[in-house]
């Protein structure tokens, strides 16, 4: 029953989550043309990965600011000269710092940033495991004498019912008077 209700909730949740997948608008202002479509594709990718230093949160591909235009022009020029993506990113970081990259590199300064989510998952898993193990060990599932007696009674009654099969084929109703005693 509860499972069914959960499944009913799942569908609207999926739609809500899908909304999160909408992409930010990309609008390069100047047009960089490349003879090679592969270069154009790398240009698009780099424009999205590099962050405009003048802006709070815009890629150089989305920003109108003059410095973003300069950076796009430099990226395009370097691509035409045959530079690799890494070389282009290095050239930008050398001038504008780590801020120029949306995904910071993994280095001494950033290991905490990258590692924290995984660390938290491990810690959280550890805590859950600890709780499970502890609960098992303390034996919360052993019954007190009174509970045991109650359970035995229930089982006994159940066995009795099953021993007198299908009276008149009528489905049995719980809590019918006279049956309990």
């Amino acid at each position: 029953m509860a499972v069914k209700r959960l499944l009913g909730l799942a569908r609207p949740m999926v739609w809500l989550l899908l909304l999160l997948l909408t992409m930010t608008a990309q609008a390069a202002i100047d047009v960089q043309s490349f003879d090679d479509p592969a270069l154009a594709q790398r240009f698009e990718a780099l424009s999205g990965r590099l962050r405009c230093p003048k802006c709070q949160n815009e890629s150089i591909g989305a920003s109108n600011s003059p410095i973003a235009g300069d950076m796009r022009a430099r990226v395009a020029a370097m691509l035409r000269d045959g530079a690799s993506d890494a070389e282009i990113e290095d050239a930008m970081v050398e001038r504008f710092g780590d801020y120029a990259l949306y995904d910071p590199r993994f280095e001494a300064r950033t290991w905490l940033l990258w590692g924290l989510p995984f660390g938290l998952i491990v810690i959280g898993g550890g805590i859950v495991a600890l709780f499970v193990v502890r609960r098992r060990r303390t034996g919360d599932d052993t019954l007190s004498a009174q509970e045991r007696r109650h359970l035995d009674g229930l089982i006994a009654r159940h066995d009795v019912r099953n021993d007198e099969p299908g009276r008149d084929g009528e489905p049995e109703r719980a809590g019918e008077p006279g049956r309990d005693a």
Binding site: K54, D70, F96
Partner: peptide, 12 residues
């Protein structure tokens, strides 16, 4: 052209 500025990492 802002070439020295670019090499200095000037953004404004």
């Amino acid at each position: 052209k802002g070439s020295l500025g670019f090499d200095l990492g000037v953004y404004g």
